[in-house]
Design a protein around this nucleic acid. Structure first.
Lengths: 229, 229
DNA sequence: CCTCATACCGACCATACGGTATGTTTTCCG
DNA sequence: CGGAAAACATACCGTATGGTCGGTATGAGG
């Protein structure tokens, strides 16, 4: 039962507008530094509407984390890295995709739940758990492909598919921290290159030769973005 | 020209007390969620003293980042991972040391500058730069050992010592994010195990066999903490 | 001992904050 | 068409916030 607002009838209902505003502002400034008034202003909504949809600022934080989980799930489900028939190639294509979507403005490529959870992990358990669900839920989507790749190649190791899936997320999060600190997205890309190298070493697959004429290695990054080069 | 305070003369001067309080509180709650009053209360200092030493809350943030850089530099310089004669063993011992100092209370093992920089990277460039100096300065202390290890083993690669040094920090930061999200320090230890595995694969050194009777692999983690087992 | 800069104290201020109370408008449904 | 419920708007409240200001205590140098 949503309804266009009186002030900005063209921008959809107030709730989703508040959530998208929350994603943008919190990623840029953090949760605590983003005030309810800021959110209302950005969403073109009054304070009354805010507290009609969310019982508190913390409730907005929880909802924003869930909203983030939903939108990113849809985004990655539609991404082209699922195309290769070989599961290992899909995993490598995932890493290449993550690398490709690191934009020049780090805030844009930043992760809402990764930013929030560091701030609130001790003070707001509800938000923390919602962030955890987003991060580990996304990691879980990689687990099947990693596991299948292990089976395909008969790999028995002291690490599990779930553990490596989590490690991809750890590297992504750490890459963003360094990129923000150094104010340079290349730092994040560098980290993801190391992740790519690690996975290739685990599975003993060669990296592509950059200037090579022939095909000497696996190149799942070719379909990283799904866009024509 | 420091001086014991009237209220708590036994706890050193107000400035350092404020800085240590800042490290504790900001790591737990984040920068924005930590008020000046909170800091003064924790440090046992009045507001007047605060703004005598720091022109603004932002200035405190910058000073806290520098303070963090100094204390961690001293801490890691005194750590036992520098002992092995082989530079690669020193690098592996560093990773083992980082793993060993992950305590059960994640907040204690958390990184001040990693937490702060995510919050303020866009809104407070001065704090961001101070955090960057701490992170990349620490990474730089690993560069010589990594470079020497590469030379020793005649490794020519598409990655540099500086890049791998930064990657260790990316993994550490990401490990902390996941540990906070999952409220489980084991997640951080898991990430550092992956980092250990990555470095061993890069340098083609075997991992130790956990239950093995003989010594079949390199075990720099034996001196991880420098404490008797 | 006197002086002076500095360290520290404690009361105060303007404002921005999260949250509430109440009113108005739209939509659904019988 | 009527009415109830939900969506949104507006004015307001108590408090916590970053920051200021005048004052006092302490140590160093002469």
């Amino acid at each position: 039962m949503s309804r266009p607002t009186k002030l900005h009838p063209d921008r959809g209902d107030a709730r989703t507008r508040l959530l998208t505003a929350a994603v943008d502002l919190i990623r840029a400034r953090g949760f605590a530094a983003t005030s309810v008034d800021d959110l209302c202003r950005a969403a073109g909504v009054t304070k009354g509407a805010f507290f009609h949809h969310f019982a508190s600022k913390e409730a907005l934080g929880v909802a924003a984390a869930w909203h983030w989980a939903e939108t990113t799930t849809a985004f990655f489900a539609a991404a082209p890295y699922h195309a290769p028939p070989d599961p290992l190639h899909r995993v490598l294509a995932y890493v290449a995709f993550r690398r490709a979507i690191v934009s020049d403005d780090i805030t844009e490529s930043s992760c809402l739940v990764g930013t929030m959870v560091q701030e609130v992990h001790a003070s707001a358990p509800a938000i923390r758990d919602a962030c955890a669900a987003s991060i580990f839920g996304h990691a879980a989507t990689l687990e099947a492909d990693i596991g299948a790749a292990m089976d395909d190649r008969g790999i028995v190791a002291d690490w599990t598919a779930a553990s490596l899936a989590r490690q991809t997320q750890a590297v992504v999060q750490g890459a963003l921290v360094l990129a923000k600190a150094g104010d340079d997205p290349a730092l994040a890309r560098d980290s993801l290159d190391h992740l790519d190298r690690y996975i290739r070493l685990l599975f003993s697959v060669a990296a592509p030769v950059p200037g090579g004429a022939g095909e000497s290695g696996v190149r799942p990054e070719a379909l990283a973005t799904g866009l024509p080069a």
